[in-house]
Amino acid sequence: MSLGVRLEGLAVRHGDAHVLERTDLELPAGSFTALLGPSGCGKSTLLNLVAGFARPTEGRVTAGGEPVRGPGPERGVVFQHYALFPWRTARGNVEFALKRLGLPRPERRRRALAALAEVGLADGAGKYPAQLSGGMQQRVALARALAAEPEVLLMDEPFGALDALTRTRMQTLLRELWKRRGTTVLFVTHDIDEALSLAERVVVLGGTPGRILADRAVPAGPPDPELRSLIARHLGSG
């Protein structure tokens, strides 16, 4: 299950400061798009607009044709710093997402454990976030977001704080989960190689105010050095 997302004439200004210039973008249902750009280019702002955490000054966002008016469970979010609840165990964090469904307790518990198993964290279910490494915490956050069965998954530099090895593992896991579930993914990153290895499509955002500098499909198969240098040039031109 997945929904398409459309950004229609989206613009954001804070007083006189233009953060995001009029932007149109369509994320087809089930697609995996990386939003690439330097810090402060407005890519997190754009993600927050889709999540419903912020309102655009102009234009609108639709998900599955419905205008976005605020946060909603059909649009799951994975945050850079995990945003796990430290007073709940890994399982408790996932169960938080499941409560909405009104399931009986044993079923909720079973589903939470299954979601944790899906991200390779079956053994850590009873642990508190403070007892887990950064990579494990982000696995819990991913399990929590997916347990709510979102149709769009919004990820804001989710692996930015992880070491290189953990990061590669998480990227592999995310690819697998996406292939299995077919959720529409919008993945914000400032890492060009991460964008190219994960996504089917890379959208480069940059400049002041932020605007789309490039929009390229990423062909399947081994990495294409030409595409990489092309995107790197666009990144540099912002």
Binding site: A51, G52, F53, G70, P71, G72, P73, R75, G76, V77, F79, H81, A83, F85, F96, A97, K99, R100, R144, A145, A148
Partner: peptide, 13 residues
């Protein structure tokens, strides 16, 4: 942290 409240809202709480 604002992210705690945002997470809760986007999880439909």
């Amino acid at each position: 942290p604002v992210s705690h409240l945002r997470a809760a809202r986007s999880l439909g709480a």
